[in-house]
Design a protein around this nucleic acid. Sequence first.
DNA 1: ATCCAGGAATTTT
DNA 2: AAAATTCATGGA
Length: 258
Amino acid sequence: MIVKDFNLQHTIECGQFFRYKKENDFYYIQTKDKIIKIKQKNNQLISNESDEFLINFFNLNQNYQEILTILNKHNDIRELTKQFYGLRIINQDPWECMISYISSSARSIPLIKQSIDLMSKQFGEEIIFDKSTFYTFPKINSLNDLDKLKQCKLGFRVDYIIRVNSLVNNEYFKNLKELDYEKAKQELMKLPGIGPKVADCICLFSLKKFEAFPIDTWIKKYLKQTNLDYKQFYPYQGYAQEFIYYLMIASKFLYATV
DNA sequence: ATCCAGGAATTTT
DNA sequence: AAAATTCATGGA
């Protein structure tokens, strides 16, 4: 498939998405019970998945230039959209997104990935793909075994997950998608383990609420240093957040390796 | 050994 | 209403 205004690496590695691994030139992306093998060569995407699926998953039908027009109004952010050109918000599955980000609170990315993989191994189904073993993401309401959850190295988040597991279902998410951003966020925050930050992540990464602006410690640091008013990027504040976030974790990596 | 991590809930000022 | 403490683990 031919794509424009899209960069696979930036989109996958900017920190919004946990379930992937890179092998040779290919990314193996996992979502729900799917495995997507994919690589990009210039403006071409090579994958085992259908164009239709990829367009939806990477939000490729969104007008990128329209988003950039708004983000580029600010000089610093214009530098970032140039540096990370083609970064898109991934359209995740809401249930998977919810569990992933509840697991994420006060932890680093490698540990989050580890817990998600362990949950998939404990509660998902095995798939052999390209001679490697993968596990599907646990289905809604299947995370109900306390002993198994305790083996997933989730710490105190086990309690949140086992409670949320019994509080949501397909209908919950169907209704959630109908709500506007503010309402959806409020609804999400009624659930245990979901505060403002995690609710914003779920809104942005799985409900197409692009005005959501999740504020974690890194973003907070950036906002404090730069005095940036993120509301000027309405209704694409979420895109601004992701560019900034990518900058922060990328520079963190730089400092860590020097 | 000690501290803290991409937060949230609870308790204390 | 804001600030401090707690939560369970792995890693620096």
